[in-house]
Amino acid sequence: SCPVAPASRSSQEMWESFSQCFTPAVKEVVEFAKSIPGFQTLTQQDQVMLLKSGTFQVLMVRFCSLFDPKERTVTFLNGQTYSLASLRALGMGVLLDAMFDFSEKLGSLGLEPDEMALFMAVVLVSADRCGIVDVGAVEQLQENLIKALRTLITSRRPDDTTLFPKLLLRLPDLRTLNNQHSDKLLAFRID
């Protein structure tokens, strides 16, 4: 039901629109993190460090549902839908191609919403340990969440022994996406 944005929208307007989408999305990741059992038992410094390292990766998982591989469109969180072709004009082609690939791979696993949410929690606590003070506490939390995810997935699909390993293989994909693309530029209008 979202119409494709008119071609008359300037590159600048699209860039601003794309940039603005990230602000509420990041705030939602912060709220999501606080709801992860055990996350707020970490020191505040470690909570902040994990969020700084892992939010981009959590957003990549979250944004998967906004990608339509068949139509090759992306729907931003403000409701605007853009074709991949129009977004290439902003120089985002490489990032979006990588995200389409990732979305297809993750989408093919057919996760239920609660499995996806638990996977996002695992992604966050598996983020880079640079700057983390109590590494032991973070690793214990990661172990607990991975165990919970494994139990959830294998109890629902006892005959599919490959799904959980395939899901964990998406973690290095996300790190690569993060390393390659988190230095991309956003632009915010100064009022």
């Binding site: 602000t23 990041v26 705030k27 700084k52 981009f56 988190s182 632009a187 915010f188 100064i190």
Partner: peptide, 25 residues
């Protein structure tokens, strides 16, 4: 005149997180 503030996605994410935790101190 400068009309836009430009920053990396990583810096923008970092800024929002720092603001959120400072607000909730």
């Amino acid at each position: 005149p400068k009309t836009h503030r430009v920053m990396t996605l990583a810096d923008h994410i970092s800024h929002i997180i720092t603001q959120d935790f400072a607000r909730n101190q």
